[in-house]
Each structure stands twice: as C-alpha cells, then as structure tokens.
Design a protein around this nucleic acid. Structure first.
Lengths: 295, 295
DNA sequence: CCTATTCGATAGCCGTGCGCTATGGATGGC
DNA sequence: GCCATCCATAGCGCACGGCTATCGAATAGG
C-alpha cells in the first residue's frame, strides 16, 4: 500500500467521480484508475462500484475508508507539526545541572541569553554525575554544569570554570560553631551527613580514609537542599561548597590539614552540533570571571 | 512522504541501527539511509543523531514517532481487516422488502438458502417504493421484493412473482362484516384507513376517483402493521392484499365492480454483479409456485 | 432516433526514482 | 596496528507511476 494510492482513494471517496478526483490530485485519470485498481487488488476486494453517473463506495470500501483516512491524516499532521515546530520557535535550551550546583551561579548569564534569543525556552535537568552523562549522551541536555564526571563517557568536551573549597558546615547552635577552624580528627564522634549525590564525594571519602579518620554515625542525603535542611535542623554536620546557598542557621568553617576542593566544569557532547544558544552559553561561561562566585 | 519511508523510519527508531534496520526491512542499507534522508528533508529537521555506537532519535524524531507510527498502524490494520473480511465469512445477503410484503411469503426460501450457504447472514430492509429503489441503487440491498416501483429508477431488472386481489378489510364487529361482498359506493360515509406506504395506493385512489367515489373521513398509516392494528381497533375500514397476515378480529370481503389487484415483483440492479446467494434467491423466487401463497 | 457528451478502462510510451553493489571514512575493540 | 562496525556516497539498471490517445458504454439533448 502506497501513500499516493491512499490519497487517490480518499479523493474518489469524497468526490465520487474518477475523472474529477484525478484533476484534484493533479494527475491524469488513467493514473488514478490504475492506483485504485492496485489498491483493490492488494486488499482483495472492490472499493468502488463504477456506475458512470453513480460511482459509489462498496460496503467494503466504506469499511476501509476510516482506516485509510486515519492513515493519511496522521501523515499530514506529522508534516503539519514539523513545520510548526520549525517555524514556530527557537528550540528550547536544555541544561543539565549537578545536584551540587547552585543555580544562582548562572542565572545572570541565562537572563542575558534570553535577551539575546527572543522567545528562548530554558529547561533544567538535575541529576548525579552518571545521570548527567546520560542526559548529554541521549541528547536530552545540550549543556551540563557539574563537578568532575569521571570516565563516565568518553565523548565529552569539558571546560573548567572555577575551583572552590569545601567547608565544614554545622548548625549555628552546634558546639563547633564557635571555632574558627576545625581539625578533621575532632569529628570522629560527630554524626556526618554524607553528600551521596555529589560527584566529589568518593574522592572526599578516600581523602578522609587516608588520614585514618572513621566516623561512628552518619546520614545519607540525595540532594543539596535536603542536606541544608538537615543541617538547619541540627541533625548532624556536613560539608558544603563555598558557592552553596547561604543560611543564617548554618556556620561554615575551614577544615585544617586536609585540602578539600573541587573544580566545576562545563560539558557538552564532543562532535555533536550544538544549537546556537547552547554555543553562546558555553562561550559566556568560559569567558566569565568566577573569582567572587562564592560570595 | 511515502509509506516505505515511514516503514524504514519506524524500523530504525525501534532498532537504533541503520544496517540492521535495513536487513529487517529486506533492503540494502544505502536505500534505507537515503529514504530517511529524504524524510528528514521533507520534514525539515533531523530525525536521528547518527553516532555509530549510539544512534538515537532527536527530540524532533521523538515528536514524529507517534504520528508516523499511527500512520503505519492504520494502513496495516486496513490490510488486516480486509483479509479477515475476505476469508472470514460469506458476505451478508441484504433483502429490501416493501412495507406491504408479508415476510412469511419468503421465509421458506430463506431457510433453504441458509442451509445451502453455511454461515450466511440475512439482513432485512423495509421501506416504501422510493426507499427501496434507493436501497438497491446504493447497493445497500442486493435484492428487493415489492409491488410496482414505477419509473423510480431505470436500471432495475424486475421479475413478476405473483398477482393477488386486494380485499376490503373491516373489523369483525363492523356492520359490513356480515356481508359477503360490498359495492364501493356503499363506503362513502365510512372512515377509510389509507395505505400511504403502499406502492399501489396512488393507482387505487385513481380507480376510485374514476367511479366518482369520494370519502368524507380517513386516516393515513405508514406501515401495514399499523393499519392492521387500527383495523383491529375498529378505527375505520381498509384494504389489504390477500397475502397480508390474517387476524381473527378482521373480516375480509371482495369489492364488487372494481378490480383491485396488484402484482408483486422481485428486483435487482441491472448489470450489477450479484453475490451468489442473491442470484440463488432470485432463481428460487422465480421458479416458485405462488398459487396458494395467500392461503 | 441520432448525436454529443461524459465516464471509466485500456494500450503503450517515457522518465523518475528506488533498488542494488561497491566503496570510503570514521570510530571503537582486540 | 589491524580488523570490525557503522553510516555515507557514487553510480547503475529497471520497475513503476506519470503521461497521451483512444475506446466502449451509457446518458443527455435536440
């Protein structure tokens, strides 16, 4: 069954005259006649009763009509949708953010971007390191901002944006809150809220193990906002990047003797053509001055 | 947009590998590649990201997928339906009957017919002369049985089956019920129930007018069963063909001096191919002995 | 009744386009 | 480094959809 046969069938079913249906389809009448014959042969029964003055659908033809109409309609609406998608709007810019990235860091650049591209829609995706790799790989995200993604997937372009310290974070009422800095060894009996969502977390754990520091108790969180909420409730102590959202209820302290630090990168899929807004964003982020980003 | 392009697109969308999709479609890989390219050109955007190890749908492709799937599915189910219709069963025999025809007259032949054609379905249509012509014309009925259809439509084959008298019918309690025959002139003050549904009715009226018989009051009915009900309720007098259903409450009397008679015909559309059961039925009806049909 | 017109079917020709094979370039795995 | 895999490209042949011309049948009109 070919699309032109369906188109011709629908025309004849509507007009009930082979000659005029052929005109409407912009083909000669014999071409249309033959196409209908072929369709009838493929389906195994006559679609029309040809009675010069009174050509009409057979019962079989009437049964076929709605299905073939649907076939043609869905093809037509596919084309319709395609043109509206193309002409209608700039395609949305999809940005994947690590759960550890404070969106405030890039808001300024995004406002600039939507000014540059009229009608641009922005879509945020959040996830862990492996989820972000997936987003990029599947094309669900055009750009990503995250800490190191490790060897998750080979085909990523990456540009370092800035580095920042990670600080010990405790509730303002916590005994340690009055200190100006803390030695890691002092934490052994504290309840630690782990950043399981954080791409740097395995590295930090390794660093602490090197120092032979073990913890007796802990919680595991799956997003930065959850961690902040638990710190504000004084359920334990944690680690936060400098650029994380500030809170009056949370005190931040440097850890002495252990250089906890992370670098934040911008990522895109290597060799894949980026929509213009994505390219612009990457350019802006790379050119930005991140010196006071944590302030 | 051509059907094979849609088919190839769906295959690649499912398999996510051009080479193996081509195998499954039983075409060479370049043919499939070209078809997809053409489809992408027609729709104005890429459907797939070709990444050797990780070919996948673009967002645009994902938007197109359901529509093109529907397009293909409806074509497929049309073919499916066509084969089941063809192999499944003998197509139903559709018989149009005049409202004045007692179905009892042909029941015997129909039982014979369904014995001959296993699984044959019979469909009855009822109507006036012009409605029956329509049924035949549109192919909604294969055969019709009725009185004269006049010049309703030229393209009918017709075969006379039998002729019968029309009798005066009165309620058993009516004063005329005791007569053995009635002169039309005696009816002038009676309330007549007219057979407006009957193809012979205009003829009868003409015949009565010829005799200068006019009626003061009357009712108009639109089916034989309604007429019978009104006669049984003694709402007036009427005329019934001999073959009409009998009723203990209704007395039938010959009308003297006016030869009310009708002929019943079998009809089919001239030059139109009849399904075998229809041809058999016509043959049986023509060969039948109708002498005692009214008994 | 004869002619003109309309409608669908048929015959036959032509060119597009879909199929094919062969091959290349790029990438990933052993 | 070599092979395997995957998609793109080049180029060829034929099938098939397009066309014109014409016919036969049936209707409409004078």
């Amino acid at each position: 069954m070919e699309m032109h046969q369906v188109r011709y069938f629908l025309a004849v079913a509507r007009i009930l005259n082979f000659t005029r249906a052929a005109e409407e389809c912009h083909v000669a009448q014999p071409s249309l006649t033959r196409a209908i014959k072929q369709l009838e042969e493929e389906l195994g029964a006559d679609l029309f009763r040809r009675e010069r003055n009174f050509t009409h659908l057979t019962e079989f033809g009437q049964r076929m009509l709605p299905l073939l109409q649907q076939c043609y309609d869905s093809a037509a609406s596919a084309k319709q949708l395609a043109t509206t998608l193309k002409t209608g709007k700039v395609q949305p810019l999809s940005i994947a953010l690590s759960l550890t990235i404070n969106v405030v860091l890039i808001i300024g650049y995004l406002t600039e971007l939507v000014r540059a591209y009229k009608g641009l829609e922005i879509r945020f995706l959040r996830g862990t390191a492996s989820e972000i790799s997936e987003f990029l790989k599947k094309g669900e995200a055009d750009v990503a901002i995250a800490g190191p993604l490790g060897a998750e997937w080979g085909r990523l372009d990456s540009w370092p944006l800035f580095s920042e310290k990670l600080l010990l974070a405790v509730n303002a009422n916590h005994p340690l809150a009055s200190s100006s800095s803390v030695d890691p060894a002092a934490l052994t009996n504290e309840c630690v809220i782990w950043r399981t969502f954080c791409e740097n977390a395995p590295d930090f754990e390794d660093r602490l193990k090197e120092k032979n520091i073990a913890f007796t108790q802990g919680h595991r969180t799956y997003s930065e906002s959850d961690l902040l909420a638990m710190l504000e409730a004084n359920l334990g102590i944690g680690v936060l990047p400098e650029s994380a959202p500030k809170s009056a209820k949370i005190k931040r302290l440097p850890l002495t003797g252990i250089g906890l630090e992370r670098t934040v990168f911008c990522y895109a899929v290597a060799g894949r053509q980026k929509p213009p807004p994505a390219a612009s964003l990457i350019k802006m982020l790379r050119a930005a001055d991140w010196t006071h980003s944590a302030a």
